[in-house]
């Protein structure tokens, strides 16, 4: 087990280097550069631009830039400087990360609780009216784009009914965060529902469920203990990988509700060609993603004793 974790952590190193390099190169390949961006439409004198480019190390070859960047990051925990504001990227991250974490966490909770609950209800009644209604509902959730759903919810719940505020001013206020969290959760919620439903419906026909019923166990126990443990394994996988997706995929939702999170910062960094900021943000997301995956793999062994790590 310990060796397995160690090996998995070591495997993260090449993945980490690969993704950061890829992002670096992609940003470099984009036309335009961050220093010109600073001057907006005015242009600015070539000397000043050259001076600034030198200051930020942008005049060096891309691989050298990457080397310096990685060296600073690993040795000093220095993720570089956001050129537009002059602030260290770690500061920018420190502002944006908790906001996104809160949004993603709330979304995750919604998708997990409601997705699994709906999935169980549908799976236990597979083929009947309730099941079909839930399937139709999830189809709707998957088909409606986030921005459409966001506006619809805003119009209904914020402007017509006045139940929830339309925008987020204070990211620590969960009342304000509720609507964006719901919007962010919808598509994943639909997938979780469908995955749970299929898994439940399939395991419901398993021999060991018949045994559990033949043992005279109450239905609560048959479903809650015997059926759930087996059915949740694929759902846990999906949920684990979705943590990363929720954090990085909130660009549209964050824009819709005026949330200053990672998604918004990534979007701005792309527009301004801020390679360093972007790589810093993506690095964090990659780490979150890799750790979530490792966690899921370890959770497997807890859920299914047939899986052993060596």
């Amino acid at each position: 087990m310990g060796r397995y974790v160690a090996r998995r952590l070591l495997q993260m190193i090449p993945v980490f280097i690969g993704t950061t390099l890829l992002i670096f190169l992609m940003v470099y390949a984009l036309p335009g550069d961050p220093v010109r961006g600073l001057f907006g439409d005015k242009g600015g004198s070539p000397q000043v631009i050259a001076q600034l480019r030198h200051q930020y190390g942008l005049d060096q070859p891309i691989l050298v830039q990457y080397w310096h960047y990685m060296k600073n990051m690993i040795l000093h925990g220095d993720f570089g400087t956001q050129i537009a504001s002059g602030r260290p990227v770690t500061d920018v991250l420190g502002d944006a990360f908790p906001v996104t974490l809160r949004l993603a966490g709330l979304s995750f909770l919604i998708e997990m609780v409601f997705g699994i609950a709906l999935g169980i209800v549908a799976g236990l009644r597979a083929g009947r009216v309730t099941d079909n209604a839930i399937l139709l509902f999830t189809l709707l959730l998957i088909s409606v784009p986030v921005f459409v759903l966001g506006y619809i919810l805003k119009v209904i719940f914020a402007f017509d009914l006045n139940w929830l505020p339309p925008n987020v001013n204070d990211p620590t206020n969960y009342n304000e965060m509720l609507m964006p969290a719901i919007v962010l959760a919808t598509a994943s919620l639909a997938y979780v529902t469908r995955l749970t439903r299929t898994s439940i419906a399939e395991n419901l026909r398993a021999d060991y469920i018949r045994t559990a019923i033949a043992k005279g166990l109450p239905k609560r126990r048959v479903v809650g203990v015997h059926l759930m443990r087996n059915s949740l394994i694929p759902v846990v996988t999906y949920l684990g990988t979705d943590i990363g997706a929720l954090m990085g995929g909130a660009v549209v939702t964050e824009g819709l509700f005026n949330i200053q999170g990672i998604g918004g910062t990534i979007y701005q960094s792309i527009v301004r060609r801020e390679g360093t900021t972007l790589v810093g943000l993506v690095t964090i997301l990659v780490l979150v993603y890799l750790l979530a995956n490792l966690l899921v793999d370890l959770l497997y062994a807890v859920l299914d004793p047939r899986i052993r790590y060596a």
């Binding site: 021999d207 060991y208 045994t211 043992k215 005279g216 443990r229 047939r306």
Partner: peptide
Amino acid sequence: RGQRIAMIFQDALSSLNPV
């Protein structure tokens, strides 16, 4: 069920809960 009438199934591997 289970208390007064009990049943033994054919394939014990699939009839026991694997987890």
